[in-house]
Design a protein around this nucleic acid. Structure first.
Lengths: 66, 66
DNA sequence: TCACGATGTAAAATATGCTTGACTTTATGT
DNA sequence: ACATAAAGTCAAGCATATTTTACATCGTGA
């Protein structure tokens, strides 16, 4: 799975820490998701999408291996 | 988090087992998600939404406690 | 150059997703 | 009543998500 978080953060002018606070997780969680180290839970994906006012599908993308 | 999977399955006339096969997980996984025992990964949520041809947000919903 | 905010990264611990296998329950049809 | 398909559930175990703490790096402004 891939994601667009970095771009969306830039668009909204948010730091990793700010996004973390807005979604109730740690900054490292945002960082590691952003660098594709692991896949977030659906709850977190929904919260992130909500912050960006976009559907989950426009932020997280299935890849071949999924 | 809550979800609509049971209703969507009914709409598409799919058994838990069929949905499990279509999304590459076990039948118990579908069953336990459906009964809100745990929250799926974003990958699985995206796959389920894809099967139902609906956005993730129309199948999975954040609740108060999330 | 120095300080500082933002980001990257790592290790260890805990929580949760997901699997397999097996058994029970609940329709529904014959 | 019986058989069968579908759904519910439980336990054990492995894999992965997420946390905390801590330290390193990078870029920018003073």
């Amino acid at each position: 799975m891939k994601n667009n978080i970095k771009v969306e953060r830039a668009r909204m002018n948010l730091t990793q820490d700010e996004l973390a606070r807005l979604t109730g997780v740690s900054r490292q969680t945002i960082n590691t998701i952003e660098s594709n180290k692991y896949v977030p839970s659906t709850i977190l994906a929904l919260k992130i999408a909500k912050v960006f006012s976009k559907p989950v599908e426009e932020i997280f993308f299935l890849t071949e291996e999924d």
